[in-house]
C-alpha cells in the first residue's frame, strides 16, 4: 500500500515539463485570442451601460428642469394674461363710463339748445301774431273810417271784412 501511495507522489520531471509547456501555450493563446477581446468587450459594454445610465439621468434631470421652467413660464403667462384681461376690462369700463357721461352731457346740451330755440320761436311767433293783429285792427279801422255812413252799412262792412279774412 505504501508503495502504491508513493506512485501518486512520484516525481515525474517529464510531466512537469509537458504540463508547464501546455499551460504556457494555453496562457499565451487565450491571452491573445480570448481574454483580450472578451474583457475589452465586457468593459466596453459596461462603460456603455454606465454612460447611457448617466445620460438617462442627465436627460431626466433636464426634462424635469424643462418642465419646471415650462410650468413657471405657463404660470407667468397666465398671470400676465389675467392682468392684461383685468386691465382691458378696467379700461373698457372706464371708457364706457366716459362715453356715457359725454353722451349724457351732449343730450343735456342739445335739450337745452332745443329749449332755447323753442322759447325763441315761441316769442317770435307771438311777436308776429301781435303785429298781424295790430295790422288787422288798423286795416279794419281804416275800412270803417272809409265807409263811415250808417250803422247798418258799418256793420255790413265789418261783416264783409270779417268774411274776407282768411279762415285760419
Amino acid at each position: 500500500m505504501t508503495l502504491f501511495a508513493a506512485s501518486l507522489l512520484a516525481p515525474d520531471l517529464g510531466l512537469i515539463v509537458w504540463i508547464g509547456l501546455t499551460f504556457l501555450i494555453l496562457l499565451v493563446l487565450l491571452r491573445k485570442f480570448a481574454w483580450g477581446p472578451i474583457t475589452s468587450a465586457l468593459s466596453e459594454r459596461e462603460d456603455k451601460i454606465r454612460e447611457s445610465m448617466e445620460q438617462a439621468e442627465k436627460a431626466l434631470a433636464e426634462a424635469k428642469q424643462l418642465q419646471a421652467d415650462n410650468d413657471k413660464a405657463r404660470r407667468e403667462a397666465e398671470a400676465q394674461a389675467q392682468s392684461i384681461l383685468r386691465e382691458a376690462r378696467e379700461e373698457a369700463e372706464r371708457m364706457r363710463g366716459e362715453e356715457v357721461n359725454k353722451t349724457r352731457d351732449q343730450i343735456q346740451h342739445l335739450q337745452e339748445a332745443a329749449q332755447t330755440e323753442i322759447e325763441r320761436e315761441k316769442q317770435s311767433a307771438l311777436d308776429s301774431l301781435r303785429q298781424e293783429v295790430a295790422d288787422l285792427a288798423v286795416s279794419a279801422a281804416e275800412k270803417i273810417l272809409r265807409e263811415n255812413l250808417d250803422a247798418d252799412r258799418q256793420k255790413k262792412i265789418v261783416k264783409d271784412f270779417l268774411s274776407d279774412l282768411p279762415k285760419n
Binding site: L26, L29, L30, F33, A34, W35, G36, P37, I38
Partner: peptide, 10 residues
C-alpha cells in the same frame, strides 16, 4: 478551454 473561449471571443 481554448475551443470554448476562442469561440466566445469570436
Amino acid at each position: 478551454v481554448a475551443f470554448i473561449m476562442v469561440r466566445m471571443a469570436g
